[in-house]
């Protein structure tokens, strides 16, 4: 009797297992075909010299040796990290905005919508738009002239301003998303903490540093991870806003732009292996940063447990 029941149960379990595996089959096939296989192939590729046509030639670590001695690679890496300055700037602005919107003021929904609209806008379309805004006789310089009487620079051509122009653009494009996250974080904080602090006579600044900021660390952590992973892959903005810059490869090029350029653009012959090698450096950087953040998280993210 007991064995029969056990048998029956395991049959049900087997049926459940079959259904489960069948239901996740599509994403697993997708994972194997479009993720795992490409990743393995890309590792192999990074040790080859290949134009995409004809035979591959194994070159060992030559691709890596070459990229570490190529100035363009280092420029692209340096610029990519430079553009990340937009992240803390955007986070600080977003925190202020969210704290403002968290008060009892009218029109919060309209405000939130207005700040969020650039987030859902097409990156290509708004990059092209800002390309026009940044021209010598464009909107930005017209505003600077009429408000402050300043003659603005030719933002996208001047190597001194092109990076900042792109950073301003990325902050404009993304600050609404960060604000929404911070606002949700603030609304999640239990009001009783503030009431208790008020009774204890804590000043506004004390309340911020002792309640608001620590309780927002988990969400800040999430914002930092996602924006860094996204920020390291900056490409479209560069393609539209920076290609006219003086000494482009020195002042503005990014890693993804460089990968695309060596792999697909060079008419003299695509360099698939070299491109794959660069892409691996990018992947490793992203993995390391993510791991560091998860390690550091334990130290500075406030947890109620």
């Amino acid at each position: 009797m007991a064995t029969k029941q056990k048998h029956k149960l395991s049959r049900a379990a087997r049926q459940e297992e079959r259904a489960g595996l069948l239901f996740i089959l599509a994403p697993i096939v997708g994972f194997l075909c479009f993720m795992l296989f490409p990743i393995c192939f890309s590792i192999v590729l990074s040790f080859q010299s290949w134009t995409g046509i004809g035979d591959m030639r194994f070159v060992g670590f030559d691709n890596f040796a070459e990229l570490f001695t190529t100035p363009t690679f280092w420029y692209s890496l340096g610029n990519t990290f430079f553009y990340l300055i937009g992240i803390p700037i955007g986070m600080i602005i977003a925190l202020f905005l969210a704290m403002g919107m968290n008060r009892k003021i009218p029109g919060v929904r309209i405000l939130r919508t207005m700040y969020y609209v650039p987030v859902v806008s097409s990156l290509v379309a708004v990059s092209v738009l800002w390309n026009q805004i940044y021209t010598q006789s464009g909107l930005l310089n017209a505003v600077l002239k009429s408000l402050f009487g300043i003659d603005g620079p030719n933002w996208l051509y001047d190597p001194g301003t092109v990076k900042w122009a792109i950073i301003i653009f990325t902050v404009w494009k993304g600050v609404g998303g960060t604000t929404v996250l911070y606002l949700a974080g603030l609304q999640n904080i239990n009001r009783s903490y503030y009431e208790a602090a008020e009774i204890d006579g804590a000043s506004g600044w004390k309340r911020f540093t002792h309640i608001t900021f620590p309780l927002l660390t988990p969400i800040s952590f999430y914002i930092i991870i996602t924006t860094i992973i996204g920020g390291l892959q900056i490409y479209v903005e560069i393609n539209v806003l920076a290609t006219g810059a003086y000494e482009f490869t020195k002042t503005a090029i990014t890693v993804v732009y460089y990968i695309y350029d060596v792999t697909f653009n060079q008419m003299a012959g695509a360099r698939m292996g070299y491109g794959a090698a660069i892409s691996w450096i990018l992947t490793i950087i992203i993995l390391i940063i993510t791991l560091i953040q998860f390690k550091v998280q334990n130290r500075w993210v406030y947890s109620a447990d």
């Binding site: 490409p38 990743i39 890309s42 590729l45 992973i229 892959q233 890693v255 990968i259 792999t263 990018l282």
Partner: peptide, 8 residues
């Protein structure tokens, strides 16, 4: 990143 798998 998509940039890593786009070539393969």
């Amino acid at each position: 990143p998509f940039a890593s798998i786009m070539i393969p």
